[in-house]
Simulated scan of single mutants.
Amino acid sequence: MLRSELVQMIKERHADFTTREAELIVTAFFDAIVRQLQADGRVELRGFGMFTTRAREARQARNPRTGEGVKVPAKRVTYFRPGKELRERLNADAPADVEYDDVLAA
Score class of each variant (00 low, 15 high):
1 M>T: 10
1 M>C: 03
2 L>G: 14
4 S>W: 00
5 E>M: 05
5 E>N: 09
5 E>P: 02
6 L>Y: 02
6 L>S: 02
9 M>S: 15
10 I>K: 03
11 K>M: 14
15 A>M: 08
15 A>H: 08
17 F>V: 04
17 F>E: 11
17 F>M: 14
18 T>V: 06
18 T>C: 07
18 T>E: 14
19 T>V: 10
19 T>I: 06
19 T>K: 14
20 R>A: 15
22 A>V: 13
22 A>G: 12
23 E>G: 06
24 L>F: 08
25 I>C: 04
25 I>S: 01
27 T>G: 11
28 A>Y: 01
28 A>E: 07
29 F>A: 11
29 F>I: 08
30 F>G: 12
31 D>I: 01
32 A>H: 05
32 A>W: 02
32 A>I: 02
32 A>F: 02
33 I>D: 10
35 R>H: 12
36 Q>E: 14
36 Q>D: 08
37 L>K: 11
39 A>E: 12
39 A>R: 13
39 A>W: 04
40 D>K: 12
41 G>W: 03
42 R>I: 02
43 V>E: 09
44 E>Y: 00
45 L>Q: 07
46 R>C: 08
46 R>Y: 05
47 G>C: 09
48 F>L: 10
52 T>K: 12
55 A>F: 04
55 A>K: 12
57 E>T: 01
57 E>M: 00
59 R>T: 06
59 R>G: 06
59 R>Q: 11
59 R>A: 07
60 Q>D: 02
61 A>H: 03
62 R>W: 07
62 R>K: 11
62 R>I: 08
67 G>Q: 01
67 G>M: 01
67 G>W: 01
68 E>W: 03
69 G>T: 13
70 V>F: 01
71 K>Y: 05
71 K>E: 14
72 V>R: 04
73 P>K: 05
73 P>C: 04
75 K>M: 10
75 K>G: 02
76 R>S: 10
77 V>N: 09
77 V>K: 14
79 Y>C: 00
79 Y>E: 00
79 Y>K: 07
80 F>W: 08
82 P>I: 02
82 P>K: 10
82 P>E: 06
82 P>H: 06
83 G>V: 09
83 G>K: 15
85 E>Q: 13
85 E>M: 09
86 L>Y: 04
87 R>V: 03
87 R>S: 09
88 E>T: 03
88 E>P: 05
90 L>C: 11
90 L>I: 09
91 N>G: 10
91 N>C: 03
91 N>E: 08
91 N>R: 09
92 A>I: 06
92 A>S: 15
92 A>V: 06
92 A>E: 12
93 D>R: 08
93 D>I: 02
93 D>V: 04
93 D>G: 14
95 P>L: 00
99 E>V: 11
100 Y>W: 15
100 Y>M: 15
101 D>L: 05
101 D>A: 10
101 D>E: 12
102 D>W: 00
104 L>T: 15
105 A>Y: 00
